[in-house]
Simulated assay, not measured.
Amino acid sequence: MSPEALQAGLDRVHGAGLAGIVAEVREDGHAWLGAAGVADTDTRRPMDPRMRLRVGSVTKTFTAAAIMRRCEAGEIDLDKPVAHYLPRLVPGERGARITVRMLLSHTSGLADYLPTAYPSLKAFPVIAETSPASMEDHQFTRFDPIELIEMGVSAPPVAAPEGRPGIYSNTGYLLLGQLLELVTGCDAEQHVTETLIEPLGLSGSELPTQPRIEAPHPKMYERWFGMYDPPHDFSVFDMSWVRSAASLVSTVTDLNRFFGLLLGGEIVSPSSLEQMRRTGPVIAFDGSTIDYGLGLTRTTTPGQGTFWGHDGTAWGAGALLMTSEDGRRQVSIALNEQRWNLLDAAGIPQPHPIDAALQAFVGLALGE
């Protein structure tokens, strides 16, 4: 693991057009921290690898781990229907058919609430027919999770329960947040903080209840496929629209620590971890198919083996986590810019040099 090569790889990502990137690569107990680019495009304040960023759906792994621990305590049964716990939120036949396991694995068939909560994105994934206007409209909106769940449940289902491939949906993970609140007596964010974030020493991580991040952080720039030019800073944003699905703020060091402990069997029991690693095909928001378990993704890279982790985006920021099957190698990456791909005449996002530079860095970090 050459520090010079890793830094050069990060520099190439910034040079390809990305505002800023931070990363931590771990191999056999040795860690390398690096950063490239700027935290503020106006002042040119440099990125620092210890900065906190919003990491989007990486939150789902934390929520899934919290659910599995409550299963171990006998408070939740993965194969009981959601109507057993939350009958008012998913009523009728669907509530009787959808299990907790299906919520975790994105096989519930529940639609995502995002197109209803953010009307300008209603046409997604037909990107050319969307607009980022709703992002600004709701920058300081305090959403009620029950109302968001109702939006997803009342929308036409996107698949039958337990159908394959599954369809990625934040609605399921907001329901899991409500389930945690039911069995623990406190909201999911507080429970995850008190039982995972604090005991594990993740001092750079939080599930904020306010729009502003108080600790050192970069600005977070959203391009929305060229519709924001220049990119719009959304580093101040009320994340109640995703809560237990995608609201986590963290550092690359904390994320590597969490995933290392989880996959090393130190957060959930071996049997719980085995269930989290049972995967199947799930259609992601961008139309790609991912290999998804219970809050974990599996990626197999020719010549490098199998890696476990998760990725995620928020408005203007995102992260990627990968840990090797044997736990010897980890890479954690966080970015302060999102959706840089421009659309062609048919409205299809086109490859960007940032994509190739990021892929090259990940390959280098994983030992390609």
Score class of each variant (00 low, 15 high):
Ala8Thr: 13
Asp11Ser: 11
Arg12Ser: 14
Arg12Phe: 04
Val13Ser: 10
His14Met: 04
Gly15Pro: 09
Ala16Tyr: 04
Ala16Met: 12
Ala19Asn: 05
Ala19Leu: 05
Gly20Ala: 03
Gly20Pro: 11
Gly20His: 00
Gly20Trp: 02
Val22Ala: 14
Glu24Pro: 07
Val25Glu: 00
Gly29Lys: 07
Gly29Asn: 12
Gly29Arg: 13
His30Ser: 14
Ala31Cys: 13
Ala31Trp: 07
Ala31Ile: 07
Trp32Phe: 14
Trp32Ala: 08
Trp32Pro: 09
Trp32Cys: 08
Val38Asp: 04
Asp42Met: 08
Thr43Asn: 12
Arg44Cys: 03
Arg44Met: 12
Met47Cys: 12
Asp48Trp: 00
Asp48Ile: 08
Pro49Met: 09
Pro49Thr: 09
Arg50Ile: 02
Arg50Ser: 15
Arg50Thr: 09
Leu53Asp: 05
Arg54Pro: 07
Arg54Trp: 05
Arg54Asp: 10
Arg54Leu: 08
Val55Lys: 04
Gly56Phe: 01
Thr59Arg: 07
Thr61Trp: 10
Phe62Pro: 05
Thr63Val: 02
Ala65Ile: 12
Ala65Arg: 04
Ala66Tyr: 00
Ala66Leu: 08
Ala66Glu: 02
Ile67Thr: 05
Met68Ala: 11
Met68Trp: 06
Met68Tyr: 03
Arg69Ser: 14
Arg70Val: 03
Arg70Gly: 00
Glu72Val: 09
Glu72Arg: 08
Ala73Ile: 01
Ala73Asp: 12
Glu75Leu: 15
Glu75Arg: 15
Ile76Asp: 06
Ile76Thr: 08
Asp77Ser: 14
Asp77Cys: 08
Leu78Phe: 00
Leu78His: 09
Asp79Phe: 13
Lys80Asp: 11
Lys80Arg: 15
Lys80Ala: 15
Val82Ala: 10
His84Ser: 14
Tyr85Ile: 11
Tyr85Gln: 10
Leu86Gln: 01
Leu86Ser: 05
Leu89Cys: 03
Pro91Met: 06
Glu93Lys: 13
Glu93Gln: 15
Glu93Val: 10
Glu93Ile: 11
Gly95Cys: 10
Arg97Met: 13
Ile98Lys: 02
Thr99Tyr: 00
Arg101Leu: 05
Leu103Ser: 08
Ser105Pro: 07
His106Trp: 05
His106Ser: 05
His106Ile: 01
Thr107Glu: 06
Gly109Ala: 07
Gly109Asp: 01
Pro115Trp: 08
Pro115Gln: 03
Thr116Met: 04
Ala117His: 06
Ala117Trp: 04
Tyr118Gln: 07
Lys122Pro: 00
Ala123Ile: 00
Ala123Thr: 00
Pro125Asp: 00
Pro125Ala: 04
Ile127Cys: 11
Ile127Trp: 07
Ala128Ile: 02
Glu129Phe: 11
Glu129Lys: 14
Thr130Ser: 06
Ser131Trp: 01
Pro132Glu: 04
Pro132Leu: 05
Ser134Arg: 05
Met135Phe: 15
Met135Cys: 09
Glu136Thr: 13
Glu136Ala: 14
Asp137Lys: 15
His138Asp: 04
His138Glu: 10
Gln139Ser: 07
Gln139Arg: 15
Phe140Lys: 10
Arg142His: 14
Arg142Gln: 12
Phe143Gln: 00
